[in-house]
Design a protein around this nucleic acid. Structure first.
Length: 521
RNA sequence: GUCCCUAUCGUCUAGCCUGGUCUAGGACACCACCCUUUCAAGGUGGCGACACGGGUUCGAAUCCCGUUAGGGACGCCA
């Protein structure tokens, strides 16, 4: 039976690279009708695990990556928190020592350091002398009497090669000498990752360890533990990591400043920030940026689009298929088609997927999304009144594919604010109302015509505008843009006739009057 | 420094295992033009890659060796 797992650390946010790894694990399990386990790696955690875990679990749920066992839901191999499994790890460490596969060591950090430096100076590979290895209880007591504190180290082979048949990399071999006698238990008795992960994977009957490439070099010491205990090794598959925008470096939250300088990444960040600001979200760049899943959730991305993008970051079915439904991804996903080279994060491509998925949605669905943002930004009452809903529907319909992410609806705030509260872009006013000769006079006479038009619909408006521009001897664009700026405050937007119809005659006239008054002043 | 991994358009990739159908396909991005009422969208077209050097072979993006470049790991972090 296929069992995969993902083991996040409770860090307070869900990293996009981690999600890609989790997705591949999830897909592999689902493809084989197996189970996906969500285990929590909180061995090194001192702060509030629950609070730091919540956004991560929320992220998984939002993306639709459900887990069969693990955090919050438990399961037959509980507990799924490493912090609660220390006794079990210690038990395994004892067994390792008994089997002669690990030993108590009393070297100090300084002594180790100097051995290391010496090796480096002589240009040879560092191999610990095992000078402070305690063979017997008497040895231990002697060291302890001398005030030393002991750790437990793996007693790794110093000859031969370690062979790993990785499902993605193929056969990887390394010399055992190159490996260190890694510490598996600290002086305070707590156990370390390299041991814990093996014990957990074994106890939880994980059949396939699918993880990022950065773990490839820890694998030999983990294989050693499996073998030393006589445990069956799981299959390993090391995924290429997700690289930062425009380079092959591993994506990292610490280098955010740099990513923001990448035009595409920076633009996405700006766009999201504008939305967050209007929603009144108190966001810091550390917790709210395009490397964090919450960013997409908060700004109105569709989880399906994010997942589809992530799927194709290191995996492809063939030379043309780009869109995958959840069932299709599950049906097609195999490890064999995972790429070996790192793939860099491309914000533009992610938005392209989002845009595509968004346009495939009905107007009603898109309106429902938009409404959430309108409510939260206070542009419509919460819950939205029927008239507000109606207006939102018409705006979303008219905006069409201009609304790529849910939060984009805020760009059309001018349809929801009070007429008197409408702000006009000064540059647009200058360009279309003040600068063109006769613009004001034309707007004034057009205003009278707008008052007369009957019915006040798009077709009639178009006829009127065309006739008016012709009579005045100006381009239709000049007239349209002048009215657009007067009524919406912006020089850009969707069709003007639809815009005026959505606002209605009364409000259109009022806004034209306001604009005329403002320009005259 | 040592060990390991990787290498096809700017980006994501198909092709590589099982050499010929590859004057290397698709998508995103970009550029131009068309459409047009601004902004999008749409239509048409364009730019654009097998890292390099040897070998094997009638034939190499594909197989082998080397070089170079990039990356990762070398913790009482995970």
């Amino acid at each position: 039976p296929v069992r995969t797992r993902f083991a996040p650390s409770p860090t307070g946010y869900l990293h996009i690279g981690g999600v890609r790894t989790a997705l591949f694990n999830w897909l592999y399990a689902r493809h084989h009708g197996g189970q996906f386990v969500l285990r929590i790696d909180d061995t090194d955690q001192e702060r509030n695990v629950e609070a730091a875990l919540a956004p991560i679990l929320a992220g998984f749920r939002w993306l639709g990556l459900d887990w069969d066992e693990g955090a919050e839901i438990g399961g037959p191999h509980a507990p799924y928190y490493q912090s609660a499994r220390q006794d079990r790890y210690r038990e395994v460490v004892r067994e390792l020592v008994e089997r002669g596969q690990a030993y108590h060591d009393f070297a100090t950090a300084e002594e180790l350091q100097s051995e290391r430096q010496e090796a480096e100076k002589e240009g040879r590979r560092f191999v610990y002398s095992r000078r402070f290895l305690a063979e017997t209880d008497t040895d231990r007591q002697r060291f302890e009497a001398a005030g030393r504190r002991g750790v437990v180290r793996l007693k790794l082979p110093r000859e031969g090669r370690c062979r790993l048949d990785d499902r993605i990399r193929g056969v990887v071999e390394v010399d055992w000498v190159g490996e260190q006698d890694h510490v598996v238990q600290r002086a305070d008795g707590s156990c370390l990752y390299n041991l814990a992960t093996v014990v957990d994977d074994h106890d939880m009957e994980i059949s396939h360890v699918i993880r990022a490439e950065e773990h490839l070099s820890n694998t030999p010491r983990q294989l050693f533990v499996y073998d030393a205990l006589g445990w069956e090794r799981p299959e390993f598959a090391h995924l290429p990591f997700v690289a930062e925008p425009g380079s092959k470096n591993k994506l990292s939250k610490r280098k955010l400043e740099r990513y923001l300088k990448n035009p595409d990444f920076g633009a996405l960040y700006e766009r999201g920030s504008r939305i967050a600001e209007r929603l009144g979200l108190a966001m810091t760049p550390e917790s709210f940026n395009p490397v964090v899943v919450d960013f997409y959730r908060e700004t109105g991305f569709l989880p399906e689009a994010v997942v589809n993008y992530l799927l194709l970051l290191g995996w492809a079915l063939d030379d043309r298929t780009e869109n995958f439904s959840r069932d299709e991804m599950i049906g097609h996903f195999t490890l064999e088609r995972v790429n070996r080279a790192p793939a860099s994060f491309d914000a533009k491509r992610l938005v392209a997927f989002q845009s595509r998925y968004m346009q495939a949605l009905s107007v009603e669905r898109r309106t429902a999304m938009a409404l959430g943002f309108l409510e939260r930004s206070g542009l419509v009452p919460t819950p939205a009144s029927p008239s507000a809903r109606e207006r939102a529907l018409r705006v979303v319909e008219a905006a069409g594919d201009r609304i790529e992410i849910g939060g984009d609806v805020i760009d059309y705030d001018d349809f929801f604010v009070e007429d008197g509260a409408l702000k006009r872009d000064p540059t647009a006013v200058e360009r279309w109302l003040i600068k063109p000769v006769g613009a004001i006079v034309r707007l004034r006479s057009l205003r009278e015509r707008l008052a007369q038009i009957d019915p006040f619909d798009a077709a009639s408006l178009e006829r009127e505008f065309v006739a008016f521009a012709e009579a005045e001897g100006v381009k239709i664009g000049a007239v349209v843009q002048a009215v657009r700026v007067a009524v919406t405050g912006k020089a850009i937007g969707f069709g003007l006739y639809e815009s005026l119809v959505i606002l209605g005659r009364e409000r259109t006239l009022r806004r034209v009057d306001d604009a005329l008054a403002a320009v005259a002043a």
